[in-house]
Computed example of a mutant assay.
Amino acid sequence: MKTNPIINIDELLQISNHSNLRIFDVRTGPNAKEDYQKKHLKNAVFVDLNTDLAEINDPKNGGRHPLPTFSNFIKTLGKLGIDKDSEVVIYDDKNGANAGARFWWMLKAVGHKNVRVLNGGLQSAENQNYPLNSGNENYPKTDYIADFNDWQLPQVWIDDVKSATENLDNLIVDVRESQRYQGITEPIDLVAGHIPNAENFPFSENLDENGLFKSPEILKEKYTEFFKNKDSKQIIFHCGSGVTACHSLLALDYAGFEIPNLYVGSWSEWSRNFDDV
């Protein structure tokens, strides 16, 4: 039976005493670790986007947050105290729209079955009086034994995306906010704009006015119209550095779609390699 990729606070409370529950705080930003230490969900362990979920080198070759090697990520899972039977719940402070969804995608991509993202993230938990804690927490280390030796979810690389820009049978989806897509503003990368022929479907469209995921039925309707009957193999999702795009892949999984291709390098890699933006 497929695990629902989204978990609500009331559901988390119901399983909070499970011995194999592992909760992870994946917030980002310059003070992420310090903010975690001040306040986080009880038993939550901090996960660092830059060191645990990426191996950062030259953004021109892989973007700002390239995936770690498969074997290094498996070692990270053991260090974090995850084994194959763990019930993993992930949250961040941006409604799952940042590294929370990236960690979910990576766990799914190594074949982990029981992993969910907290609907509404930290804010929702606080609003509903979920128990909080401070300081640092950790779980006993494990030896994660994977069934595979490489990522199992579909990805594409910069040459694939270049080919896709020249074939209108493909759909390249940019999930950044509209002003970044249009090139009006670019707060992070060196160049503003978007990949040629990419279409914009901001990740924020996955959420309602309360910062919660829209229902699977609403998401299904919106994306079905947007995809125009294209097969998931013809669809590529990207963002700035392969993090926020995972929020839309999470929404698609929640709505019952096959998870399409992720371009991890995203705009941060593309914009450093091509002038046609």
Rank of each mutant, 00 (worst) to 15 (best):
N136T: 15
N4A: 05
S124V: 06
N119A: 09
D52A: 07
E225R: 06
P68C: 01
H18R: 12
K42P: 04
V277L: 10
T142H: 00
K230N: 12
G193T: 02
E258T: 11
K228H: 09
A251G: 12
N133K: 07
P216W: 00
Y144T: 00
S271Y: 02
M106I: 03
P202H: 08
F237Q: 00
L219E: 03
D231N: 04
F103I: 03
N229K: 10
P59H: 12
H194Y: 07
F226Y: 13
N149G: 08
P216D: 00
Q128L: 06
D275M: 09
N61Q: 06
R272P: 04
I236K: 04
Y130R: 12
R176H: 03
D276A: 15
D25E: 11
V173W: 04
P216Y: 04
E137S: 11
G121Y: 07
I74G: 00
G78D: 00
N129I: 11
G78R: 00
A146V: 01
Q37F: 10
S268T: 01
N98S: 14
N17M: 08
K2P: 10
N4E: 13
I158T: 11
K141H: 05
G120Q: 04
Y223Q: 01
D85N: 14
R180M: 15
A44Q: 08
N138H: 09
W151L: 02
S204Q: 13
A99T: 08
D92I: 08
L171A: 14
D25Q: 10
I188F: 14
Y263S: 05
P5N: 10
F103Y: 11
T165W: 07
A198D: 03
K94A: 13
L21Q: 05
I184F: 12
N95W: 14
D35T: 11
N197H: 14
